[in-house]
């Protein structure tokens, strides 16, 4: 049996951490795109559309991400689709992220005072014009800190993709442990890896929040 040096462990974890980063980016960018569409539909759409979006958000917020991953991977297989771990993880995390971002952003749009809608309305702006020129620019400023904050949850959520065989940071840790039987060392490094990814984002979110609310919204 080959011996693993600490450097071997770290090197392998670093290589696997790439896929944690890539999967997080896919989930976040995909989730943001879907989430934006959902937010607009939920704010302005017809009543049945709003109702559907709400159901979607409730469904993904009310079930564990782990189950969503299982369903995307094994469920698709049962239905006859041959999906890779990559596809399943990307789809499940994108949908999960979109549901949370939709809810965060709806809150930000609703946080813009109703007087702004009224002012836009009496000046003759229609719904889309009001959204574009008056409401969204203000909602966007409110949305940045919680959105950055949520991206931390997405990164940590990718760890669950390990259970469907997606080799990212956590899965690599498990595999290394099976070979070396040094769980304490390995999972300390794994945890450290997540911390290095997440901590700067948390700090940045906090900084944005202070800057936004401390200075008052101009």
């Amino acid at each position: 049996m080959t011996d693993f040096t600490t450097w071997d462990i770290v090197r392998n974890l670093l290589l696997a951490a790439r896929w944690t980063v890539v999967l997080s980016l896919i989930a976040f960018i995909g989730g943001a795109a879907v989430g934006l569409v959902l937010t607009l539909l939920r704010m302005g759409g017809l009543r049945p559309v709003r109702w559907l979006v709400r159901g979607y958000v409730d469904l993904f917020q009310g079930t564990p991400l782990l189950m969503q991953l299982f369903l995307a991977y094994f469920g698709a297989a049962v239905l006859g689709f041959d999906v890779s771990a990559w596809t399943a993880a990307s789809v499940a995390l994108t949908l999960f992220t979109s549901a949370f971002l939709c809810d965060i952003w709806r809150g930000c749009v609703e946080a813009v005072p109703s007087g702004q809608w009224q002012a836009a309305r009496v000046l003759g702006l229609n719904y889309l014009q009001s959204m574009r020129h008056v409401i969204l620019p203000q909602a966007l400023r409110l949305a940045v800190p919680p959105t950055v904050g949520f991206s931390v949850q997405v990164i940590k959520g990718t760890a669950l993709a390990s259970v469907i065989g997606f080799v990212e940071l956590t899965k690599a840790g498990t595999m290394l442990n099976n070979a070396t039987f040094e769980p304490f060392t390995i999972f300390t490094f794994v945890a450290l890896g997540y911390f290095i990814l997440c901590y700067p984002l948390s700090r940045y979110a906090r900084y944005l929040e202070r800057r936004l609310y401390g200075a008052g919204i101009r």
Binding site: P113, G115, Q116, Q118, A119, A120, H133, V134, P137, Q138, R141, I217, R218
Partner: peptide, 9 residues
């Protein structure tokens, strides 16, 4: 309006 409702941004 009573509360002006200027666009703050």
């Amino acid at each position: 309006f009573q509360s002006f409702n200027l666009f703050p941004h």
